[in-house]
Simulated assay, not measured.
Amino acid sequence: MGREKGLLLLKIAAGIVRVDVGSWDEVIVMAAPAEVVVLAAKRQEDTRQKLVAREIRYDGGFVVCRDVNGVPIAR
Rank of each mutant, 00 (worst) to 15 (best):
D67V: 01
A41R: 13
K11Y: 12
G2I: 04
G2Q: 04
T47L: 08
C65G: 05
E4C: 11
V19P: 06
L10A: 06
V37W: 07
V29G: 10
A53H: 08
V38D: 12
V52A: 07
E4P: 01
V63F: 15
M30Y: 13
G22W: 02
C65M: 00
N69K: 07
D46C: 03
A14E: 14
A13N: 14
D25G: 12
L51Q: 09
G61W: 04
I56H: 12
W24K: 03
I73Y: 08
R66F: 10
D67L: 01
P33C: 09
E45G: 02
A31V: 10
R18A: 11
I73G: 05
W24A: 12
D59K: 12
M1Q: 05
E35C: 09
V71Q: 07
V36N: 01
V38E: 05
V38K: 08
Q49Y: 03
M30H: 11
V27S: 14
G60Q: 10
K50M: 14
V19F: 06
R43P: 07
G15Y: 01
N69P: 02
V71D: 01
V37H: 08
G60I: 02
T47H: 04
F62C: 05
A40W: 12
E35M: 11
K50H: 06
R66Y: 04
V17P: 07
D46F: 09
G60P: 08
L51S: 13
D20I: 03
G22T: 00
L8P: 03
E35N: 10
A14N: 13
L39S: 15
V29L: 11
M1W: 02
A32D: 15
S23W: 15
D25A: 13
K50D: 07
I12Y: 12
Q49K: 12
V17T: 13
Q49T: 04
V37Q: 09
F62E: 08
M1D: 00
G15K: 03
L8E: 01
G60L: 11
G60D: 02
V29T: 15
K50I: 04
W24V: 06
V71H: 02
R3Q: 15
A40I: 15
R54V: 10
I73C: 08
A53Y: 00
V63G: 11
I16W: 01
F62A: 15
V68Y: 03
E26P: 05
V64H: 03
P33A: 15
R43G: 12
V19R: 00
M30D: 14
V68R: 04
I73F: 07
V64L: 13
L10H: 04
E45N: 03
K42Q: 11
D20Q: 08
V37D: 03
V21D: 03
Q49L: 09
L8C: 04
E26I: 00
V29Y: 14
V21P: 05
I12M: 05
I28S: 09
C65H: 04
R54P: 01
D20W: 02
D59N: 03
A53G: 11
A34Q: 15
D46H: 05
E26M: 07
A14T: 14
A40M: 06
K5M: 11
V36T: 00
V21Q: 09
L39Q: 15
I12G: 13
V19A: 05
D46R: 10
R54M: 11
R48V: 09
A34F: 02
D20C: 02
G61K: 09
G70H: 04
W24Y: 15
T47A: 00
R48D: 05
R18D: 09
V29R: 14
